[in-house]
Structures are given as structure tokens and as C-alpha cells.
């Protein structure tokens, strides 16, 4: 396979993975209004747990927990669930008490501590070295080599992404999603309508974290390795940027967001050769560009590049409505009173 095609499949994989990550964050942030600045922490938990479950017993100086050699997609699902459990702990501790910005403060602190802890505590997930040689799903069974695995797994990820898109669109189009968006717009007014806002936020946090975990799991299975350099706290911002660029509360726009932000700005620059004497400068510039891009989008198109689509009532015009019900409404001509 030509390097270009190989490379395109790699990019395609990242688009699918980041779509899943973006949908999860979009549920939490776009629909639920939760500023989860620790999102990448949940991605990492999914990645580590999936990786450690798929790997065999540690050997040759490696150290990590689990090591059960679980097959695809069991490790992936458990990774998602692990992120979910972690989200449950965090939410129960913080959701009832905190307004948006304090919650964001606690969450960002959480992701920094988690980072610090996983980096230092080697027996858990290998410390700073992380996990390596995570088996490539189906590679042995189907006799795939490095060249064929990439397109194959990109395809698998596409299927997973399609499934998760279907599940997510059912959620966001349901009355559940509607009430969640109501609580995003005004939690007090929503509570005054009889909605247990805490419950709605909690559920959106849990499902969003599951998406984070699964996205992380796919990344570790694709890349075969995962360590703390893959989830610097700034990565959370990338996903936020993807969600905002793609359109807050908009699942289809996410595809564009995933394409522009993580792929165009971070995967692509990895393949641009370093400027001699300035290692990493390209990546720094790309990161700054993302920050600036996001601010510009927020300023000029605060609803995102593709704004949230109106969910129309599909009710007939007033005149038709009365033809069908046979009632006559002479009493209400309203325009002049408003």
C-alpha cells in the first residue's frame, strides 16, 4: 500500500475516534452544560483499562494491573464502563454542590491529579512508560500485518462509530435530551418544572464518560501503546474545540469538528518534519493555532460553524389546524397586543 493511502486510513481512524470522543463531550457540555475540563482523564481511564485488560500478564520489566488477554470488544466495553464508574464517583461528590465554574475547577484539578498519580504509580498502568505492545484486535486471527491492520481497524472503528452515533442520536432526540438541554439553559427554571436536574446531569455525565472511555480504548488498540504524553491536560481543550467548531449540541457537525481540529491541527503536523534546532515547535504552533481558532469561532460564530439544528414542532399552520379540528378561534388575534 502506498504511504499516502496508509496515512489516509490513519487519519480516517482518528476522525472516527474523535467523533466518538466529541459526541460524549457534546452530551455533557453541548446538551448538559457541564464544563468537564477533565474529559481527557476519562479518555485515559478508558484507554488504560482497555489496554491493560487486552494485554497478557506483564513481563520483561513491564508492570500494570489486570493482564487478562480479553478479546475485542470486551476490553473496549469494560474500558468504557471503567470511565463511567469513575464519573459516577466524581459526580456524586461534586454535582449537587457546585455551580458551573467551581465544578470546572474541581474537574481540572482532578485531571491534573489523576495525571500526576498515574505517572508516578508504576504498578497501576506502568507509570510514565505507560502500556506498550497492546495486541492489535483480530490481527492474529486474520493474519493481518501492519499494512493491512490499519485499514482494517479503521473499518472496525467506523462500525463502532456508526453504532455509537445511532445510540447518541436516540438520546439527544428523546425527551430526555430535551430536558437535559433545558437544564443547560436554566437549571433553576427547569427544576421549577418538576425535573430532577441532578439526575439528568448525572446520566449525561455517565454516558458521556462511557463514550470517552470507548474512544480512548479504540485509540490504544489502534496505536498499541498509551502513556502520559498522550493525554496532557491540553488535549481536553482539543476536544472542546472540536465540539465548538462542529457545533454545540449538534451530532453531525461533530464530524467536521473532528476533521478540522484534532486531525488537521494535531495529527497532520506530526508528519511535518521538525524545524532544525527547534524540536516540537510545529506542534506548539499548531496548538496555539487551535486556541486562536477557537476564540475566533466563539467570537464570530458562537453557535459553532454548523449551528445546533432547530428541532421543529412539525405542527400544521394555525389555519389548517382548525380545519382539521373543526374549531373556530375568533377570539385570538394576538399580534397587536404583543
Amino acid at each position: 500500500m502506498s504511504p499516502l493511502v496508509y496515512y489516509l486510513f490513519t487519519l480516517a481512524f482518528f476522525v472516527f475516534a474523535y467523533c466518538i470522543l466529541g459526541w460524549g463531550l457534546n452530551l455533557q457540555f453541548g446538551h448538559g452544560g457541564i464544563l468537564n475540563f477533565a474529559y481527557i482523564g476519562f479518555v485515559a481511564i478508558g484507554a488504560y483499562v482497555t489496554g491493560a485488560l487486552s494485554l497478557g500478564k506483564p513481563s520483561g520489566g513491564q508492570s500494570y494491573i489486570f493482564g487478562f488477554s480479553l478479546p475485542f470488544p470486551v476490553g473496549l466495553i469494560l474500558g468504557g464502563l471503567a470511565a463511567c464508574v469513575f464519573a459516577l464517583l466524581v459526580s456524586v461528590l461534586t454535582f449537587r454542590r457546585l455551580r458551573t465554574d467551581y465544578l470546572a475547577m474541581v474537574l481540572i484539578s482532578l485531571s491534573l491529579v489523576l495525571y500526576d498519580f498515574i505517572n508516578n504509580f508504576v504498578p497501576l498502568f506502568g507509570g510514565a512508560d505507560g502500556l506498550t505492545n497492546v495486541p492489535e484486535p483480530f490481527a492474529d486471527a486474520l493474519g493481518l500485518d501492519t499494512n493491512t491492520f490499519v485499514p482494517f481497524f479503521a473499518g472496525v472503528s467506523l462500525l463502532v462509530a456508526l453504532l455509537m452515533w445511532w445510540v447518541m442520536s436516540r438520546i439527544t432526540n428523546s425527551p430526555f435530551g430535551r430536558t437535559l438541554r433545558a437544564s443547560r439553559d436554566d437549571d433553576e427554571a427547569t427544576a421549577a418544572l418538576g425535573k430532577n436536574v441532578f439526575k439528568f446531569r448525572l446520566i449525561s455525565m455517565l454516558i458521556g464518560s462511557f463514550y470517552a472511555g470507548v474512544g480512548g480504548g479504540l485509540i490504544v488498540e489502534f496505536a498499541g501503546a498509551f502513556n502520559t504524553s498522550a493525554w496532557l491536560p491540553g488535549e481536553t481543550f482539543l476536544i472542546f474545540a472540536a465540539v465548538i467548531v462542529g457545533g454545540v449540541g449538534n451530532n453531525k457537525g461533530m464530524i467536521l469538528g473532528a476533521l478540522i481540529v484534532p486531525v488537521l491541527f494535531t495529527q497532520l503536523p506530526k508528519f511535518i518534519p521538525d524545524i532544525p534546532g527547534h524540536p516540537g515547535l510545529i506542534l506548539n504552533i499548531a496548538a496555539m493555532a487551535i486556541g486562536v481558532l477557537l476564540m475566533l469561532v466563539l467570537w464570530f460564530r458562537p453557535q459553532g460553524v454548523i449551528p445546533e439544528k432547530k428541532r421543529l414542532s412539525k405542527l400544521p399552520p394555525l389555519s389548517e389546524r382548525h380545519r382539521s379540528t373543526g374549531a373556530i378561534s375568533a377570539q385570538l388575534t394576538t399580534e397587536e397586543t404583543l
Binding site: F240, M288, G291
Partner: peptide
């Protein structure tokens, strides 16, 4: 809040 978060990345 997102703007200050983005500023921190920049």
C-alpha cells in the same frame, strides 16, 4: 471560562 482555558493552551 472556555476562553481562559484556551488562553492557557496558547
Amino acid at each position: 471560562l472556555i476562553v481562559t482555558f484556551g488562553l492557557s493552551l496558547v
